[in-house]
Design a protein around this nucleic acid. Structure first.
Length: 446
DNA sequence: TACCGGCCGGTGAAGACCTG
DNA sequence: CAGGTCTTCACCGGCCGGTA
């Protein structure tokens, strides 16, 4: 059944609604009709018309008022934007999303939206920012630029997530949880904003309660849309194993609907790389938000700036160049996060400064790692293993080798990359890179 | 008093659009 | 092969009031 069949009835019985519906695109009108006929399982024209009218009345005001905006094609909307100097694309997309949610149709069934997206893509692909030198029709397009930006963002997220994983497992000895949090089914028919607000409120409450108890938790959270465009969370959370029970109880308290499928909702992380990849697979789409838990708010730009050797607020040039060299090795290394002061918890950040706060440091291995950071950063081993001896000495002093012989062989090769003057006596090491000015290049003159 | 949680303002991130 | 501007969104921390 399609709209034309019932239009006459609606026009006669509900002229007001008929007028409202005038501006709605015909594919939508047909979809409303088809959906309604299917739901009430009848083929009587009058009956269906009444149902459709009822549905329109039950629609929230803002959706009903925006039928015309929803129904504009991409070209029309561009024209409108040009005239009114406002940005409407996103607004229209959001309206259509809510409309789909009320009507309970999937985005891939929404032909109008699909066409809109295709038009937009086409427009981006044909806008050439810079032409090829050889040909007139090809070049660097707006679409290429957008893709590139997305790849860059993906890379940053992925790198930070790997470093964070390394830090939590190997430095803090925390264990990883993988959470998938969904809303109960009654939220699948409300507006997108409502669902979003609800799920984010619950998650905020969880974090606040953990914070209130001073439970350090780090990780990455990703908001994704389900098939029916209800948001849900994928979260990698790293916590102290001894607090796991409490954390789980808090989570289940906020998301009681996950009680039944508890073993799906909360899993241990075995393969972090896979897990990160899974979380980030859709990160290019709109309304996918990736954020890091327990890291500074500006961690993304911080990381990017350091990676490209640019200044960033409180980071000294020294720190930046050191961290950058660590990043260039392309392996997950949680100490990078310490070096760029990337944690929102100052106690962790202070580990890379001269007077570290040892709150989270429990064993000698961790103290050793802090020493190692100091060796990289200041060229000094602080003897944090045995504070009675109070030896802060430059690395190249020979007595260090004696005092720290327990682990010295372990770090020597690493230290040498940045530090001169280590005596090779008795210890195995090799020179990976020599410091020095590169020879002047000749081609500069030409 | 211990513990929550709603509200709000500031701020960084992301989206949208434009331009040779 | 970018880069600028403007707008909107999400999030965090702090304030504060409610409740056992």
């Amino acid at each position: 059944m399609n709209y034309e069949q019932i239009e006459i009835v609606i026009r006669q019985n509900h002229p007001r609604i008929w007028q409202d519906l005038l501006s709605l695109h015909y594919t939508y009108k047909n979809q409303i009709t088809a959906k309604t006929a299917e739901n009430c399982a009848c083929h009587d024209v009058h009956e269906v018309a009444e149902q459709v009218a009822g549905w329109v009345i039950s629609c929230p005001e803002d959706v009903r008022d925006s039928f015309s905006l929803m129904s504009m094609t991409y070209d029309e909307i561009k024209e409108r934007q040009r005239i009114t100097q406002t940005k409407l694309t996103r607004k229209a997309n959001l309206l259509r999303r809510n409309f789909r949610r009320y009507l309970n149709i999937r985005p891939d069934q929404d032909q109008f939206q699909q066409q809109f997206n295709r038009d937009k893509l086409e427009s981006e692909k044909t806008y050439i920012v810079r032409y090829d030198s050889k040909s007139d029709n090809t070049g660097w397009t707006a679409h290429d630029a957008k893709k590139r930006e997305q790849r860059k963002r993906y890379r940053i997220n992925h790198d930070i997530a790997e470093h964070l994983d390394d830090f939590c497992l190997n430095f803090l000895n925390y264990s990883g949880l993988f959470l998938s949090l969904t809303l109960p089914s009654e939220y699948h028919g409300c507006s997108y904003e409502e669902a979003k607000e609800e799920i984010s409120r619950r998650w905020t409450n969880i974090r606040r309660r953990l914070k209130y108890r001073n439970i350090l938790h780090l990780g990455m959270s990703v908001i994704e849309l389900q098939k029916d465009e209800t948001p849900h969370y994928h979260i990698q959370l790293y916590i102290n194993p001894s607090e796991r029970e409490y954390v789980e109880s808090v989570i289940l308290h906020e998301f009681p609907n996950e009680q039944g499928r508890q073993y799906n909702a909360i899993q241990s992380i075995w393969d972090a790389i896979n897990c990160i990849g899974y979380c980030l697979k859709d990160s290019g789409k709109t309304d996918n938000y990736v954020s890091f838990i327990g890291l500074t708010k500006d961690i993304k730009s911080r990381y990017d700036n350091v990676y490209h050797n640019r200044k960033h607020k409180d980071l000294s040039d020294w720190r930046i160049s050191k961290s950058r060299r660590m990043m260039k090795k392309n392996q997950s290394d949680g100490q990078i996060l310490l070096m760029i002061r990337g944690f929102s918890d100052d106690k962790l950040n202070s580990l890379s400064s001269r007077h570290p706060d040892m709150t989270y440091i429990r064993n000698d291995i961790q103290r050793l790692q802090v020493s190692y950071i100091h060796a990289l950063h200041f060229g000094v081993f602080n003897n944090v293993c045995n504070s009675n001896e109070q030896i802060d000495t430059r690395c190249h002093a020979i007595k260090i080798t004696a005092v720290f012989s327990r682990f010295y062989t372990f770090v020597t090769t690493q230290v040498y990359v940045y530090q001169e003057g280590i005596l090779p006596v008795c210890y195995f090491w090799e020179c990976e890179k020599s410091r020095g000015q590169p020879p002047p290049s000749k081609k500069e003159k030409a």
